[in-house]
Design a protein around this nucleic acid. Structure first.
Lengths: 244, 244
DNA sequence: GAGTGGTCTAGACCACCGA
DNA sequence: CGGTGGTCTAGACCACTCA
């Protein structure tokens, strides 16, 4: 009841929102333990069951994880590659390889009509473009462009992105923003020339098809903040997304 | 407590399993109302909260849906196309078109090594192959092959598949089987010749890239029963999957 | 108004963890 | 052993739907 009653939201929703804010705000570091369900219940004036319901939803959303008998912990921000995996086509149980990230550059852009609409910006709004290359066993396999509204991330520094935190880590540490995937699209396309050269596909090789991924992500209040575009070479590889 | 105590599973899991079986067994038709939470609680010797938790998980899995103030209903089997959608690349909010299904044929096959492993069958185990074509505004956009273990679906009749129920409807009505996606892979490939001709891509056109989807589905006990392979023409189109 | 799902509580017991 | 998450109950009240 001490939780601010903005609308007439159920109590567990208010608790969930409050905890989301406190997590995004950096009150706890990754892998820090939250107070126990009973402590939170006391503190927030709710019952343990209600707190539990809120926590469960945050666990499901990937912000927290639980260990029976130990406690509830803050999950690390997802890596820049995301929940996806690259593996051998047809093998579903295979343990996937880790991918190496290479930061290529930070530049400025103006939003095309599509992107402006998806990010709820005006036409030609300024964007930051963060370009990254992914390697598997040293060979380039994917090229990523993340497009972010420049105004929301004023002061973004390329040096942060070069570091080990990556883009998502930087957004969380420097801007207190944690993104969640809203929608994702897949498409097969011939690899465009610019992307081909960045991926090291030379003109000698015949044109290659690429898996083209578009992803829209939003912060925890639902404001769309990232348009991610990925060209992925799936020669002898397949792209998997987590399933419920 | 009247629920059969096979293992030492939590009560809500037992309730969930029991209800899953009764739904798959056809005790209720699609859009039939289940007994109320209180009636189920009485009948099964559990509390309303426990029944509610079981029902919630089945709602999340898409087997049931709820309407506040009315009741809990059995959801229709998913269409053969699945939860995916085809829409214009970059437009995330677009209302997708319905696709028309065309049954192409039922044939017999022997499992390749990959497929045998994924479906937990011996090598060269007999399979049924159900081939379907999908059209959008009359134009072919995707070709589906569903591969099922022949032994599990003995007596499958092509006439059932030609009907409006489709494959998933037939599996549910005739075999009491309801499938759930286990894992999904995406890949970009040049369209192979056979698939190209079925999709009406003539030799005059240069080679086209195709989005290639592999999907493994299992029944509600987790036994893998379907290997689905889909070639999808994504010229001016993009493939979307539901997001939590 | 009766019946339904949706929320919330207080209290209980269990299984698991670590000191 | 005490503290944690995980389950379960009984009872309460609310919001919604439909007759």
């Amino acid at each position: 009841m001490t939780v601010g009653t903005l609308k007439r939201q159920p109590l567990y929703v208010q608790v969930r929102q409050l905890l989301m804010q406190r997590i995004a705000g950096g009150e706890w570091q990754a892998h820090d333990a939250l107070p126990s369900e009973w402590e939170l219940a006391d503190e927030l004036g709710a019952s343990q069951g209600t707190v539990r319901k809120a926590l469960s939803e945050l666990v499901e959303a990937g912000l927290l994880y639980r260990q029976q008998g130990r406690g509830t912990y803050v999950a690390a921000a997802p890596g820049d590659w995301g929940e996806a995996r690259l593996l051998t086509p047809g093998l579903f149980m295979e343990q996937p390889d880790e991918l190496a990230r290479e930061f290529l550059g930070l530049s400025r852009f103006n939003a095309s009509e599509d992107i402006a609409e998806a990010l709820q910006l005006r036409r030609l709004a300024p964007l930051l473009r963060i370009r990254q290359l992914w390697r598997r066993h040293g060979a380039p396999v994917a090229l990523d462009d993340a497009l972010l509204p420049a105004e929301a991330f004023d002061g973004m520094d390329a040096r942060w992105l070069r570091g080990s935190a990556g883009l998502y880590g930087t957004l969380q540490q420097r801007f207190g923003v944690r993104l969640q995937v809203v929608s994702e699209q897949f498409r097969a396309e011939m690899l465009p020339r610019e992307e081909a050269s960045l991926l090291g596909v030379t003109g000698m090789v015949a044109d290659v098809p690429a898996l083209c991924l578009l992803r829209l992500s939003a912060d925890m209040d639902g404001r769309p903040l990232e348009w991610r575009q990925r060209y992925c070479l799936t020669h002898q590889l397949a792209y998997t997304v987590k399933h419920g």
